[in-house]
Structure formats: structure tokens, C-alpha cells
Write a protein that binds this DNA or RNA. Structure first.
Lengths: 215, 215
DNA sequence: CGATATAGGGAACGATCATTTCCTATTCAA
DNA sequence: TTGAATAGGAAATGATCGTTCCCTATATCG
């Protein structure tokens, strides 16, 4: 009797308290698919320009159903933000774990960010950047999540610089934390410029210039 | 008879067709002060979260008066954007013209951007970044202005790199255009992170790391 | 099987927003 | 000095938006 209760609690925690309860009619829609639709809308239009109508279309739900699963529009946004950062962190860690040397892994991350900032994906934009620009100043909770996401990226990059010290692919003189901070500026700036649709003709040149930070 | 007409036309062009006409009751408010108020509102809240009520407060005008001077909310925004980029470009050119060597002028520009991304000013944000993120994808005219502003900054930075070749403060191997592109990423990223309220404890270290791009 | 609990969905509601209207005030032209 | 033109400002308007309500459907518990 207590085991399923614990399982439910764990699922509720991982799903951010948006998991379906045990009693009553079960949820018919897929929460992850619905949130993917919400992510698409919020990335393209931002928070304020996304209407509930936009969200019902993209999530495949009626407004009544949305308000059964979420407290309000902001609650949808926070759930979408959390899923976005979850997926993005997974992608980054995958990219950052492929190559042999730490230097090459950092190069792969730059390429990944540059690719994310190109074409349709670039125009769609980054939800973290969008939240920072549109919401962080007046919403403490959003600001905290944006800060945590940036700190997370910074830590990942700093860790790679430190690994580079160990495998001798990055000179000891390169400060991990300070360099990672500048690299975060660089990557977030790529997303901004990508939103404006200005992509570099030859990304490989851009990457090599960015790699000078590891000198 | 024709001379004042020409003068009026020139003023209308420079003021973006928002100048007061010759006939009728003259405008009582100062257009530049009003636009400064609009700039403050749009920088803090973005476009969609800024209500006409916010703008009447910040511009010191009633809604009826605002609609006498501007076609609609978007027209106010475009005028504010143009004034913002005008002022910002002037500031940048002033900063970029002080030091002796081109390398030092580039360093001053990094410091200027980092300072603009700190504290209250940083939280207030950059109107170009905000426009790129919130509006560029669905508003061609805004996208064009954002693109022009980024291209302008890029050209300014590239020009300094080229000057650095001439005064030998920047190695010849540093490509002006490609390096300027990366520097734009860097500076726009600073504004994003500044919006989130995360400023570097010691800006001078950050600046020196950024200067590695000129290696 | 009946009671309870929750989901799905669409219509209704209340608030807010951008914009217009209308009236007064102030200028220039004739 | 009168008329045309425009500014200032407050109230009215119409549309849109987020949210709630209500009804039906489907599950579990006793």
C-alpha cells in the first residue's frame, strides 16, 4: 500500500507536480508532447505574445483541459521552461562527451551552439534567453531559473576547461571560471543574433576564433 | 516661401516624420524627453508587456495626445528604437575614439559593454536585444532595424581591428570581419546575462580574456 | 453498482488593452 | 477678427485575453 504511494510521489516530483493523480478519469494526452508544443510557441512568440489560443492549438488541448493540468498561463510556462532546460542540458552533455580531448569537446560545444543559432532553429530562439530578456526583471522565480540555467552552463564549460588542464589540451594559464563566464556570453550572444536571422557564412572560422579564448 | 517648406521637410525627416507641423497649435511636450520615457518602459518590460498606460505615465502624455503624435503603439516603439540606437551609437563612437591605440579602444568598448550590462542599467536591458528576441521573428521592419544595428556594431568593431593592423596594436593574422562577428556575439551575450542580474565580480579579468580574441 | 474524483471541451465571464471620439485650447493665415 | 488646423486630455468603445463554469465522459474505491 505504501509502495505505490511512494512511486506516485516520485513521479509527481519529477513531473513537477503536473502528473496525473491516481483517482478519477486518467489523463488522455501526453504531457511531454503537450509541453513540447508549448515550448515551440513560447520560443517563437515569447511569453506575453503567446495567447491561450496559441497554446491550445500547439498543445492539442482545449482551454478547460489546460486549466485542469496547470494553475495558470505562467504555470504552463514554468513547466515548459523546465522541460526545455532538461532536454537542452541532455543534448549539451551528449555533445560534450563525445570527443577525446577536452579542447575538442569545447569546440564541439561551440559548433553545437552555432548550429542551434542558425536557420529555422535559430529564429525559433532559446527559451532561456527569451525568459531572461522578457521576464527576469519582474518575475523572481523565472529569474532564479534563468540564473540556475546560466550557472549550469557555466559550470559545464568550466569543468571542461579543468579537464583540459588535466589532459594538457588547454594551457594551465586559462582560468576555468572566468573563461567559462566569457564563453557563456559568447553562446548566449549567438542565440540573440540567431533570432535576428544573421548567421555566419562559415561557422568553422567563427569556431576557431572563439577557441582563442583557450589560449 | 519655399525655404521654410524645405526646412520643415528636413526636420520631419530627421525626426522620423514625428515632428510637429507648422500650422495649428504647437506641440507642448518635448519629443526627445517623451521618447526617453518610452525607451525606459520598453527596455524594462519589452514591447508586449508595456501598456499604453505605462507609456502615458513614462512619457507624461495622455493617451489621446500620444495618438496625435504616433500612429499606434508599434509606431511609438519604432521611434523609441531609432532614438535608442542613435544615442547608443553616439556613446560607442565616443568610447571608441578616446584611447590611443586601436587595441586600447577595443578594450574600452568591452569595458563599456560590460558596464552597460551591470546593476540597474544591466537589468534594464538593451532595446536591440529585446527587439531581436521578442519581435524580430514576426515583424520584418523590426528585424531589419535590428539587423542594421548589429551590422553597424560589427562594422565599428571590424574597423577598429583594421586600424589595429595599421598601428600594429593588433596582429595582421586577426581577421577584421570574422573577429568582429564573434565580438558582437560576446557583447550581445553580456546584455542577456546582465538582464538576468549576473555580473562578473571583477570586470577587468573578463575584459582581458575577451581581448584574447585579438591574438 | 453507486459514490466519488478527475479529465475533456466549449461557452461564458470579467478584466485589460489599444484605439477612437469628443470637447477644449492654442496657434497661424487671411 | 474669424476660420482652419492641430494639440491636450478624458471618457467611451470594441476587441482580445486569461480564467472560470458547466456538462459530459471515464476512471477508482467501497
Amino acid at each position: 500500500m505504501i509502495v505505490p504511494y511512494i512511486a506516485v510521489m516520485i513521479k509527481m516530483v519529477t513531473a513537477g507536480s503536473h502528473a496525473a493523480p491516481v483517482r478519477g478519469r486518467p489523463r488522455e494526452f501526453d504531457m511531454e508532447e503537450a509541453l513540447d508544443g508549448a515550448i515551440r510557441v513560447f520560443r517563437e512568440r515569447g511569453y506575453h505574445a503567446s495567447s491561450i489560443g496559441d497554446l491550445t492549438d500547439a498543445m492539442g488541448l482545449a482551454s478547460g483541459s489546460i486549466y485542469k493540468a496547470f494553475k495558470d498561463k505562467r504555470d504552463i510556462f514554468l513547466a515548459a521552461f523546465d522541460r526545455y532546460t532538461l532536454l537542452r542540458t541532455a543534448q549539451m552533455q551528449q555533445v560534450a562527451g563525445a570527443a577525446k580531448s577536452a579542447r575538442e569537446r569545447l569546440r564541439d560545444l561551440f559548433a553545437f551552439y552555432l548550429e542551434s543559432s542558425r536557420g529555422v532553429e535559430g529564429r525559433r530562439g532559446c527559451l532561456v534567453v527569451g525568459s531572461a530578456v522578457e521576464l527576469a526583471i519582474f518575475d523572481r522565480e523565472v529569474a532564479a531559473r534563468v540564473g540556475a540555467s546560466l550557472a549550469n552552463n557555466e559550470a559545464l564549460l568550466a569543468g571542461l576547461v579543468r579537464e583540459g588542464h588535466l589532459d594538457s589540451s588547454v594551457p594551465r594559464g586559462v582560468d576555468p571560471e572566468e573563461t567559462a563566464r566569457v564563453m557563456v556570453y559568447l553562446t548566449q550572444g549567438m542565440r540573440v543574433v540567431g533570432k535576428a536571422g544573421r548567421a555566419p557564412p562559415d561557422p568553422s572560422i567563427t569556431i576557431e576564433i572563439a577557441m582563442k579564448l583557450l589560449t
